[in-house]
Design a protein around this nucleic acid. Structure first.
Lengths: 220, 220
DNA sequence: ATTGATAAAGGACAGATGTCTCGGAGGGAA
DNA sequence: TTCCCTCCGAGACATCTGTCCTTTATCAAT
């Protein structure tokens, strides 16, 4: 079992009698981990991989809220605010997740101060970063947001400097703009030699410029 | 002591040995309850009144994050995310607050599951509403945000339909725009007969229109 | 190869919003 | 009263951004 793995990420050890109630779930890229509108069924602890959180608007638009890597917990908001899931969590890399059923929390972990501290830390972290990005979004024009997006998805582990263009529409809705405007910005950058568009891909020639444009804004 | 008052708002009762460590603090309108940059010294429980949360930007601008009425807790983010205060909490009505020193939390309440549940609920609530307003801000033009602002500060208890114009600059920075643009919108509304500008004040003639423009967006 | 359907890029235009600036009103001091 | 300072509102302009639409490219089926 992944007790050690969980322990090293979350610094918490489940008692032996609980372990049989827990389970590991795996998700492939593009797969929904939790989906807006559904009822939450437990607490999800990301063990490995990467997912994104987005929300669906009344307009039918999608807005990127954040990218998450471990340590990261899903389901906490819904459980404590007592509401349905309002944001989608979608795997962008293969994700391994430890699932704690709600009943297990209600009957055991709810009374475990150490476990609650874990949840409090996570919620506080998310609220803090949400506040930051809320301000940032209110103040950053699209070119900054796009550069920030590129920096965010350019995880250092990922060696490729290429981002599939066929999802340009997605990128647009994720950062709250339109593909048209993205094209405008990409055209500017191409003319400035910062990027290069080769077939279906965007090739970033000058990361320094992109980073400068991003003004250190990140979606995480 | 305000045990009953606290109990009726937060559904929690402090044990008798703790009560002597707690204190009541009062703040007048415009007074800072907590101030960005300071170290957090405890948990603040709003008992009565109303305050606003705003944050200072690198640009020197201020952005309104939310208005709060009871039940509302301050200091939780900072304590659990282990950071300095990043947002200002400023009284807009006389505020009565129960203050729980950090040491009291650390030595006693930290191990009290019921108390932690209280904090979890509050954090989840704040995160949920922050997420909502984050989306809203990314999608609402300034006229909607201004109407929403007016609706938000127009608490039903407040009988006056007048809002001081001498803080127009403040309002602008609070909703993330400029006074110039606010004037443009106010001029439109004046020409439409929705409002009237009399001396230093904005007189709202047609709340229904304002409410319609606000698209149900609220800063709370 | 031809035709038709679909998608991508970009032109044209309008509306939203920020910056700069000026003129006028009000208030305080001489 | 007159002069000066400050602040407010608004005009002018530039820029950002969204919508609509046309052109071009791609790909599949005939």
């Amino acid at each position: 079992m992944n007790q050690n793995q969980f322990q090293s990420i979350y610094h918490y050890t489940f008692t032996n009698d609980l372990i049989s109630s827990l389970s590991i779930k795996n998700f492939q890229p593009h797969e929904f981990i939790i989906k807006a509108g559904d009822k939450i069924e437990g607490i999800y602890f990301l063990l490995s991989g990467r997912y994104m959180v987005s929300s669906l608007e009344v307009t039918g638009k999608e807005l990127l809220l954040r990218f998450c890597q471990q340590p990261s917990i899903m389901g906490d908001v819904e459980i404590f605010a007592d509401c349905l899931i309002e944001s989608n969590c979608i795997a962008v890399e293969p994700c391994e997740i430890l699932f704690v059923p709600l009943e297990v929390y209600e009957t055991h972990l709810k009374y475990d101060s150490e476990f609650n501290q874990l949840l409090l830390k996570e919620l506080a972290y998310k609220l803090r970063t949400c506040t930051i990005s809320s301000r940032v979004n209110a103040l950053s024009p699209v070119n900054v947001r796009l550069a920030a997006y590129l920096c965010t998805i350019h995880s250092p582990s990922q060696l490729n400097k290429y981002i599939k263009t066929n999802s340009l529409d997605d990128v647009a809705s994720l950062i709250g703009t339109t593909k048209r405007h993205l094209n405008r910005i990409l055209k500017d950058w191409t003319e400035s030699g910062i990027i290069e568009r080769v077939e279906e891909e965007i090739h970033i020639l000058n990361w320094d410029s992109i980073k400068e444009i991003s003004e250190n804004v990140r979606f995480e």
